[in-house]
Write a protein that binds this DNA or RNA. Structure first.
Lengths: 232, 232
DNA sequence: ACATATCTGTCTGATAGCGAACATAAAAAA
DNA sequence: TTTTTTATGTTCGCTATCAGACAGATATGT
């Protein structure tokens, strides 16, 4: 494994610490639908994503779900369990688009975190920034409508992957946005009519970022600001 | 100041550390509406609440708001700024009901946290638990209706204060729940009709906890579980 | 007691979203 | 190719909530 990875956390780690850590990482490919961990379970591994999108979801007993965090190559999953993880979490973590990641057994990474203060600080920052993004999304979920949230999510996904195309069906987007599939269809249709996006079966493409920004709620810019200085 | 306070974090601190910290705390009374900190600002103090309720809010540019965290005497405010706080937060923090708290200049507490690993661990746990509760609330905000969320909020408020009476108007509850005042009026009226609560001007009382639980969403129990083992 | 401010109740029309059903279209598998 | 599966488009009635207005009730201060 090379000195440089495509994961922002690993890149931010000072070279000696990085080299030591990278020696223990194992490259993996995660297909869409792969479950990194279930609610109330302690994950076996930690993942440093290098490409792809991973959603952290809350599921209610009636089966409805909502995404509470979207992750890409900016950090480590699951930051909370790496830092502490004695209490259960109400979330499950699912791969949305084909993802590549370095993985390491959770216990090993915890030991590394205890050894390296620089690593611990980065994981801590990752957890803190994620919490701040979640803060904005919690309010967004209450105050903004489906079209605004869909536009916001698509823009964030593009920022994370660098790709204007996202391979997801409207049904999965509905699970993510916590809406019904038909609501997503209507919202996506409205965005396509204005030529901000285009899509075909299980595939959305952003064709007018500025237009899409104008359709998104202010939460997009707030969240983008938090992603930008992820490790400050 | 005595050995025992009414703040769970301070109580959880091993006596030697506690004594050292408590010597620096200053007792304050915070009236409803008092602002502990504004969005994007670094707070001057940290507060250990001993009674009362404090809301952390997100405000959108159109003036609508939603509470993203309700705090009482379980921890320290603002845990994030005590741990790190180099990035801004999109939240403001407001006193909801008459609150008493011990305060300490933020910089002083940060120094104490660096000195005392026991203290740092407790603040960290406080932040982590708050994040997990927020996780559930983020999904709740998307998936549950006003009546369920009102019931959930009232039960949590009672758990935090130990008081079945809550001195808040429906207008303020609307800000908290991220709904309009009339929506809260309708939800509160429905809960009163079923004799789960009673209220008069700016004052709500829970009169049937079990009934109220049946009207609340499952998020109440999830959040209660997270509060119960706050420092595990 | 009075005047004032604030809170609650209710009404209106408008809209977003739910929940369910079904038709069509497009990809994948046989 | 044909069949099967899956995704999208659209309809329906229904409910929750919004957004704004206004009347009446209840505290609060003078």
């Amino acid at each position: 494994m090379g000195q440089y990875t495509d994961n922002l956390l690993l890149e931010s780690l000072p070279p000696p610490h990085r080299t030591a850590l990278c020696a223990r990482l194992e490259e993996t490919a995660l297909p869409p639908g792969a479950v990194l961990y279930e609610a109330e379970q302690i994950p076996r591994y930690a993942w440093f994503v290098t490409s792809g999108l991973v959603s952290t979801m809350v599921a209610m007993s009636d089966g409805r779900t909502a995404e509470i965090s979207l992750s890409g190559s900016e950090g480590v999953i699951p930051a909370y369990h790496v830092l502490d993880g004695h209490a259960g979490t109400p979330t499950r973590c699912v791969v949305q688009t084909a993802t590549s990641a370095y993985r390491i057994p959770l216990g090993e990474l915890r030991r590394e975190v205890q050894r390296s203060e620089a690593l611990r600080a980065l994981v801590q920052r990752c957890f803190e920034r994620r919490t701040m993004i979640l803060t904005q999304i919690a309010a967004c979920n209450r105050l903004h409508d489906a079209e605004q949230r869909l536009a916001r999510w698509l823009l964030t996904a593009q920022d994370l992957t660098g790709d204007s195309s996202i391979g997801l069906s409207q049904g999965f987007l509905a699970d993510i946005l916590g809406s019904r599939r038909t609501t997503v269809t209507i919202a996506a249709g409205a965005l396509r009519r204005r030529a901000f996006i285009d899509y075909r079966r299980s595939h959305i493409r952003i064709i007018d970022r500025d237009g899409l920004k104008s359709a998104a709620c202010e939460c997009y810019e707030t969240v983008r600001g938090l992603f930008q200085n992820f490790y400050k």
